[in-house]
Design a protein around this nucleic acid. Structure first.
Lengths: 199, 199
DNA sequence: CACATCTTGAACTGTTTAGTTCAAGATAGG
DNA sequence: CCTATCTTGAACTAAACAGTTCAAGATGTG
């Protein structure tokens, strides 16, 4: 059983990512990673790097995979900001609804652990959150909202999106999550409806 | 140095609570608890119980302390729902602004860890979250919002409140947090303004 | 065929953890 | 003064963990 790689790198990285996603950085041991990937400890070490390196690779992988989906959802923000934000939340809601994937959000979970993580990993998590906010800010500013309102909504949507992670970890129902995002979507819709009508 | 208790139980419990709050259940060892409380391992064991018991006591303590503040904030929801919700968020924002206290929220943090916690502790965390939602539901239903809108806002406010915990752990600024709650407060205000004006 | 490449299981070190027990010492109250 | 109560430091078991190394075996390629 040798001479060529015996495993698929993408499959192994996905398995590791899901393990970290489920149990967090501190809650995942090398044994857990070995079990999850089906790889030997030595193979993980030589093929995927040490625990920190592997975790950062998984964070990047996660950010890229779902970041692309968020980008796609927000691409029509200029002309249809409400639908764009709805689609943005749908990316999260669909991920939560997928029984193959753990609940929550790897980045939100890592952010929550920042005070007890190594500086390098904490910085990585902060950057990922920052990119998410920038994405939203840019998309909403490109729409027809006044600058300050767009800023506030960007922060708000990012925060609500994170709260979905917390709620789903605690077993919230799809109806509960829909209620949460519904208020935000309605508020945005309202803000757009009244944008040219000074009170 | 004996014959009478050498430490103040409330002080010790507070210290343990803050330690769990900062580092989470799994991230806190008996040594950490010993350091935080200034008590010997044996003293913790004989006076505060084992790790699980102590954690549950800290959860209850936290829920009671801040639950009371949330109750007080929501007490005027019947006549001034917007101000009540604003005051509700202020309880969280003031806690976050207090440099003596860790960022985030012990209950939100525990909820995030539910998939890797023991069933007993997970149930306790879920109950605490449920009480929070019930509180909000009751307060908003007592106001002048239609039932379904009140339900949705209750879920939404609870979720946004949790997101403040995530954001503050990641180092969000007060301005960012204010923007997040501002959108929610404005949305509630708007919902009340249009409650008798069918579109 | 031979070699380079890869996988694997096992081992070892050293640290940390939870949980528990015990004996010695100090003190307040009767 | 004396005793019940409390504190303390230390020790111990047993388990889990990260990190690393190594030798043995399998296999594809030249």
């Amino acid at each position: 059983m040798a001479g060529k790689k015996q495993f698929d790198m993408d499959t192994a990285l996905d398995a590791a990512m899901i393990q970290f996603w489920r149990a967090g950085y501190a809650g995942t041991s090398l044994d857990d990673l070995s079990r999850a990937t089906g790889l030997n400890r030595s193979s993980i070490y030589s093929s995927l790097g040490d625990k920190d390196t592997l975790f950062l690779r998984c964070l990047d992988r996660y950010a890229a995979r779902y970041g692309d989906k968020y980008d796609a959802a927000l691409s029509r923000a200029t002309t249809e900001p409400v639908e764009a934000v709805r689609a943005f939340f749908d990316v999260t809601l669909e991920r939560i609804a997928d029984p193959e994937l753990p609940d929550g959000c790897l980045i939100a979970q890592t952010a929550m652990a920042i005070p007890v993580l190594s500086p390098g990993i904490a910085a990585h998590a902060r950057e990922a959150l920052g990119r998410q906010r920038s994405r939203l800010r840019a998309a909403l500013k490109a729409g027809s909202l006044p600058g300050q309102v767009a800023e506030a909504f960007a922060e708000h949507v990012a925060a609500v999106n994170q709260s979905l992670a917390v709620m789903s970890r605690a077993g919230a129902s799809p109806a509960q999550l829909l209620a949460v995002v519904g208020v935000t979507v309605d508020a945005l819709s309202q803000a757009l409806r009244t944008r040219d009508v000074p009170g």
